[in-house]
């Protein structure tokens, strides 16, 4: 198999030029999908029989909860790529994705709390899923603070990547233990009141929102990665050329 396509992505210049159009596409698409999904979900989707209008937060809560986990996965994979193939871009991805992941996780937690108040009667329950999401949020914060406190950039990249991998190895154990702890302490007090099969007009806007969230993540990561690449490579000729073309210099 020919691996040159893979190695080309290791070059910051190649990455910067190839993603120029991609960023715009991701940005427009996510904007359209998020607007369509939000309007459809909030205004046109039918009401839930049990929860009434309060279930509509589903359209933000569920995509953010799913995305929050995917980001961690992506960071871990990227960390492996960075450590094994010493690809700087992979390290940049990890560092750039971490704050986005943390904020999406926080969004999932906050929307969950807001949803919990009308349906469960409390803002916070020590439910297994809530607790493990909270701990995942803490892991994100730990990784971010580790990156920010190491002065040397290359060391910081490596350390963050290792911390990511340690986190991903521990995450299943944490999830399992929290699940297990839940069943031991309070046997099944709360169940998510989701109907097992949702009506199509209810889940389709949810799916649109989910895809919109993923595209938003791709967009935000690319924007941040591109600015990081520009800053890192500011002394090279191609960056100067690019800036001159843009009439910035």
């Amino acid at each position: 198999m020919n691996w040159t396509w893979f190695h080309k992505w290791g070059s910051p210049k190649w990455f910067f030029q190839k993603t120029e159009a991609l960023v715009l596409w991701f940005g427009f698409l996510c904007l359209i999908l998020l607007v369509v999904g939000t309007v459809w979900g909030l205004a046109f989707a039918p009401e839930d029989i049990k929860q009434g209008n309060s279930f509509r937060i589903f359209y933000i809560h569920v995509p953010s909860a799913i995305l929050a986990q995917s980001i961690f996965m992506a960071m871990a994979i990227s960390a492996v790529v960075g450590l094994v193939w010493r690809m700087k871009l992979a390290h940049i991805f990890v560092q750039v994705a971490a704050p986005i992941g943390a904020s999406i996780t926080l969004l999932a937690l906050v929307t969950g709390a807001i949803w919990g108040k009308p349906t469960w009667g409390t803002w916070w329950v020590w439910d297994a899923r809530l607790t493990s999401t909270l701990i995942q949020f803490f892991i994100y914060l730990g990784i971010i603070s580790l990156y920010q406190s190491i002065e040397n950039r290359d060391t910081a990249y490596k350390a963050t990547a290792i911390a990511c991998l340690v986190g991903i190895v521990n995450l299943p154990i944490i999830k399992f233990s929290v699940n297990w702890w839940k069943t031991l302490h309070q046997p099944a007090t709360f169940k998510l009141t989701e109907a097992p099969s949702m009506a199509a007009e209810m889940w389709v806007p949810g799916l649109i929102m989910l895809v919109g969230f993923y595209l938003f993540f791709a967009f935000a990561v690319l924007v941040r990665m591109r600015s990081e690449v520009l800053e890192r490579e500011k002394r090279t000729a191609w960056v100067r050329e690019y800036l001159e073309k843009k009439n910035v210099l």
Binding site: I135, G142, S145, A159, I162, N170, I174, S177
Partner: peptide, 29 residues
């Protein structure tokens, strides 16, 4: 990971504490 950070104590605690959750759960129950 934090050996090079001056006053790395707090970063170390933040990094490690979430990973201690399973041990805490199994140990204390």
């Amino acid at each position: 990971l934090t050996v090079k950070i001056r006053r790395g104590n707090i970063v170390l605690a933040l990094l490690v504490m979430p990973l201690y959750v399973p041990i805490l759960i199994f140990g204390s129950t």
